[in-house]
Design a protein around this nucleic acid. Structure first.
Length: 1014
RNA sequence: GGGCGGUUAGCUCAGCGGUAGAGCACUACGUUGACAUCGUAGUGGCCACUGGUUCGAUCCCAGUACCGCCCACCA
């Protein structure tokens, strides 16, 4: 059956994709070959960066996975034992967000209304229903993963692996719990890590407040200029502070000034009235305030600002939390006056635990329950009303009377501020004092740094290493607990602390919880039982605040504790025993995806896959997750199994639109890879991806370019179609060895094929996907299609017909093979439609060709032939000779080599240059001249020729030559050049000059002749 | 504020010490038996600027300008 005129991408992709999956062509180890002496095949493995289970394929995925698939297919064809591990990530926040949104849309009860268990069931339902989307989209892209090994960070052995790592790290002291100031997302009501915070510059304001000195004290406030001259002296009863977040003043613990700041030296150590609050706070000296910024005095709110937190820690200031989990001013706890009374005692030195300080709600009644932004407005208004705002005199003109008067107005500076936003929620992040779990990254960062420094893991491009070092060398503790439900629940159980009294009676204290970290609940219970002497009961949720309050108020004994809990929890009857509960938090998604390499390979079991494919060969991922994921995988794998997770990390940038803009829904410039595949085919998209994958460049995707590569596929298709129509594949199956060729064109293209193979190999070895694509494009279109197929047309009917058929089949087979990693569909389809094939292309062996196939004589000769044809064509076009008109040609001068070359390729030259006959002799009247290496020709164009135009043509050629000759001569006349440049360079310049001068002489002669005519 | 990168044809990008490249776009011609998703021939560059190193610089070095990206606690 003859081939169709065009490749039907949609039909072929569906058919071939199904075929690959049916044959499991991507299975681990498929096509692996043992060496000639029985050596084990070399292993090659890639871990897919697991997409979010709820996600769908975007251009970044398409790009990223194309590169992975190119490497995988290349190695697989080379007979390596190849694994491309596929799977998805449970993506805690993102997935929980999606499901919550879906529930809301469907009018279903909210997450909190339905409770943890029911909600998680819904998430699983959602996962089962839509989790396969992106996997199927990867298949459409042509990804040849081992689909049977699809992993999920919440399924199979993965949860056990994650828990085991947590327990091990906990036991080694690499994970700890602590009350720290963390980034709190008031929308999702969870802590997030530093990396999940995006700092964005927004328009903000700075307010200036006066805090009055206690007891009506005053001081001399003196400002001086650089020379020490007094510029302002006044008696003040206040200190002025500036803030962009007025609402946090309710939790101030002090006002800080720089110890070197003479203006405030007299009042350091004194107390000031905190406005709107019934409290006094001290003025302290600390290096943190910059005397040259603002008033030089900073309010210190330890529980709501990271800088202030450090200052507060240094000075032992109490940290008063002002907000609840939703970012509203607290309304819990005791009444304001009660809380203030206690706060004063604490300020005066009363003993107070961290927990107690945290439980104190110092928000005055009027602000309680207000959203933080409403509270800000209220605080500002109230301060203004109290006359405690720093004011400035403004001139006001009465519009009616035209009279001027002066008025005092609060200073509100408009100011650009960097504001933190949650990367998922997009709401303003609140620094919040909470109990969280942390990885003590400082303890595990060393090996991760060393691995890259030593080259055990190579990061490409190199600039990625600098970024990696910079971050890891300044690493902060990693907050890994999230107050979410979807995720790996932290394997820690809490129970009351137990002390055995001298009387042998154990007493319990719920305000002092003890934590037991264990892989399973059973193990945790056993350990509690040992501790308590009796087996406790596990309750689903932690004790309520009320329970804790009770526990705090009365120093409970075992009996009362049990009673208190039994009455209030989960319908458990009295006497249920000592109650323990599991930490309700889940782990940061990146904690589990940090274990992706070993987790997907079956760890902690020493599976054959783990032995064979770990450490993995290459990680290909976006540079945007170098910290989130790459660095953490390095740290985690090294901490857990003491091996690097990958040998090479290839980082790439964000895929942008044709103009270099980020793709975003709001800009409307998002290119959907699936639409591109529908329109141009997956191969075209893949080729475009490969072609733009230069190291370190920005990735700008232009659909015009994709269309160009679709055309490239068509070009290849039609070359094959031509070959197939001419029976090129008849009578032989795939030939590994190149055919013995005698015709120069055949010898030449065989050598070109070998060169291309070596270029592709070296490009892919260096992760230069762009160079591989470029080599193939130039080879297939620029040499095979543009020249070889044309040369073959006459050769296919003459004495060389047999070898030409064999050569063309071999060349096209190799084209398909070499292109297959980049364009798998069209090549697989062509493979099936041409020749008798033993196996699918995807499992066909990658060729092993050597440069000995390059026949330099054939190369030189074909270059000469191509040059001559181009000269003739160019002259014809410029002389407006109709394409259909065949001309005669006269050789006016020809050396032996040129004669032989012409003779051997006469049919080719005549056909492609549209020449009728060749004669030798003098240039006839009215002919145009052309010069090539070793020969001059005349094209008789009597009557056709336009003398003026031909003169212009020759002059232009002369100009170009003269410029080149000038440059070459200039260099040779420079004694320093001849003396210093390498000999071969000098020789090359000399021979170049000779050739150019010879050409120029011919052109000059031609011009002279032309003048004689004209 | 710190770090990293970029500036080459109208556009998007390669190249990187020895005569400037590709794709797209553009111009002219063309249905020559694979291909109009095509062919042939063309047009188009002080390789950002200024110095330096060198026999020679788009390429190496220094500085300048502009443009990106990442990190960062100035209240």
């Amino acid at each position: 059956m003859p081939m169709e005129k065009n490749f039907d991408a949609a039909a072929a992709e569906a058919r071939i994709s199904a075929l690959w999956q049916e044959k499991k062509v991507g299975a681990a180890g498929a096509n692996a070959k043992v060496g000639p002496k029985g050596e084990k095949p070399q292993a090659f493995s890639i871990m897919i960066p697991p997409p979010n289970v709820t996600g769908s394929l975007h251009m970044g995925h398409a790009f990223n996975n194309t590169l992975q698939d190119i490497l995988i297919r290349w190695h697989r064809m080379r007979g390596h034992d190849t694994l491309w591990q596929v799977g998805t990530d449970h993506a805690g926040i993102a997935t929980q967000m999606v499901v919550e949104r879906e529930l809301a849309k469907a009018g279903a009860p909210s997450r909190r209304e339905m409770g943890r268990e029911a909600f998680l069931a819904k998430v699983w339902e959602w996962k089962d229903q839509s989790g396969g989307t992106i996997i199927n989209q990867l298949k459409r892209l042509g990804a040849s993963c081992d689909w049977d090994r699809e992993a999920f960070t919440m399924s199979g052995n993965f949860p056990d692996a994650v828990i085991k790592v947590f327990v091990d790290m906990y036991n080694k002291g690499l994970i700890y719990r602590g009350k720290r100031l963390v980034n709190w997302d008031p929308h999702f009501e969870t802590a997030i890590s530093d990396l999940e915070v995006e700092n964005v510059e927004v328009a903000g304001h700075m307010w200036h407040f006066k805090y009055r000195l206690a007891g009506g004290e005053t001081y001399e406030y003196v400002e001086r200029d650089e020379d020490g001259l007094v510029t302002l002296r006044e008696t003040r009863d206040y200190i002025s502070i500036a803030t962009t977040r007025p609402e946090t003043m309710l939790g101030d613990g002090a006002v800080a000034v720089n110890p070197s700041d003479a203006r405030y030296a007299p009042i350091v150590g004194k107390m000031v009235h905190l406005p709107l609050c019934d409290r006094l706070i001290p003025i302290i000296a600390d290096e943190y305030p910059d005397p040259n910024f603002g008033s030089g005095a900073v309010k210190i709110t330890g529980a709501h600002d990271f800088n202030d937190y450090q200052v507060a820690k240094r000075h032992g200031l109490p940290l008063y939390r002002l907000m609840d989990t939703r970012g509203a001013m607290r309304s819990d706890g005791a009444a304001y006056d009660v809380a203030v009374a206690r706060a004063r005692e604490i300020a005066a030195g009363a003993e107070a635990s961290e927990a107690e300080v945290d439980a104190l709600n110092l928000v005055p009644e009027k602000y309680r329950g207000m959203d933080r932004f409403a509270a800000r407005a209220a605080v500002v208004a109230d301060i203004n009303a109290l006359g405690l705002a720093v004011t400035v005199l403004v001139k006001e003109i009465d519009e009616d009377t035209g009279s001027e008067h002066l008025r005092l107005e609060p200073v509100v500076e408009a100011k650009k501020i960097m504001q933190p936003f949650g990367d998922r929620s997009k709401v303003v992040i609140e620094p919040m004092l909470t109990d969280q779990w942390f990885v003590d990254t400082a303890k595990i960062v060393g090996p991760a740094l060393e691995a890259v420094r030593s080259g055990a893991t190579k990061i490409m491009p190199e600039s990625g290493e600098k970024t990696y070092f910079h971050w890891l060398e300044n690493i902060e503790p990693w907050c890994i607990s999230r107050q979410l439900w979807w995720g790996h629940q932290i394997p820690v159980w809490y129970g009351p602390s137990a002390t055995k009294g001298e009387d042998g009676v154990t007493s319990f204290n719920m305000s002092e919880r003890i934590a037991i970290c264990a892989a399973t609940e059973a193990e945790a219970l056993e350990r509690f039982a040992t501790l308590y002497g009796t087996k406790p009961t596990v309750i689903a949720s932690p004790p309520t605040d009320r329970d804790l309050a009770k526990a705090y108020e009365s120093n409970l004994t075992a009996k009362t504790l049990i009673a208190a809990f039994a009455a209030d929890t989960a319908g458990l009857g009295a006497g249920a025993g000592i109650l323990v509960y599991r930490d309700p938090d889940v782990l940061d998604t990146w904690f589990s995806s940090g274990l992706w390499p070993i987790g997907t390979l079956g760890w902690p079991d020493q599976t054959p896959e783990l032995r064979k494919y770990f450490p993995t060969s290459t990680l290909i991922t976006g540079a945007d997750i170098i910290f989130f994921w790459v660095a953490r995988m390095m740290m985690m794998q090294l901490a857990v199994v003491d091996q690097v997770p990958f040998n090479t990390v290839y980082l790439h940038g964000l895929v942008r639109d044709a103009k270099g803009k980020k793709m975003s829904k709001s800009l409307g410039n998002v290119i959907d890879p699936l639409e591109i595949i529908d329109e141009f085919g997956a191969d075209a998209l893949r080729f475009a991806n490969a072609a733009m994958a230069s190291l370190g460049g920005t990735l700008k995707l232009d659909t015009a370019r994709i269309a160009g590569y679709r055309n490239f596929g068509t070009k290849l298709w039609n070359a094959c179609r031509f070959a197939e129509m001419n029976g090129v594949w008849e009578g032989h199956s795939t030939q590994t060895a190149p055919p013995a060729a005698t015709a120069t064109a055949n010898k030449w293209i065989i050598g070109e094929t070998a060169k291309t193979l070596l270029e592709v190999n070296s490009a892919l070895e260096g992760y230069r996907f762009d160079q591989a694509a470029d080599s193939l494009y130039k080879f297939v279109w620029g040499r095979v299609c543009d020249w070889y197929v044309e040369f073959a047309k006459p050769l296919l009917v003459g004495e060389h017909a047999g070898e030409t058929r064999a050569t063309m089949a071999w060349v096209l087979d190799n084209s398909m093979i070499l292109l297959h990693p980049i364009m798998p569909f069209i090549t697989e389809d062509l493979w099936g439609q041409t020749g008798a094939r033993e196996k699918l292309l995807v499992h066909t062996d990658w060729p092993d060709l050597s440069l000995s196939l390059v026949d330099s004589a054939a190369d030189t000769e074909m270059a000469w032939v191509i040059g001559l044809i181009e000269e003739i064509r160019s002259a014809r076009t410029q002389m407006h000779v109709p394409v259909g008109l065949k001309l005669d040609i006269v050789a006016t001068e020809m050396d032996a080599a040129a004669k032989a070359a012409f003779a051997r390729n006469e049919v080719l030259i005549k056909r492609l240059a549209r020449i009728e006959t060749l004669t030798h002799g003098a240039a006839p009247k009215g002919s145009i001249s052309l010069a090539v290496d070793g020969a001059s020709f005349a094209l008789p164009l009597d009557g056709v020729i336009d003398v003026a135009e031909d003169k212009a043509r020759l002059s232009k050629a002369m100009d170009k030559l003269a410029k080149e000759i000038g440059g070459l001569k200039g260099r040779l006349h420079n004694p320093n050049f001849v003396a210093s440049a390498p000999e071969d360079v000098v020789e090359e310049v000399k021979s170049n000059l000779e050739a150019r001068e010879e050409e120029a002489a011919k052109l000059t002669a031609a011009l002279k002749r032309l003048s004689e005519i004209g």
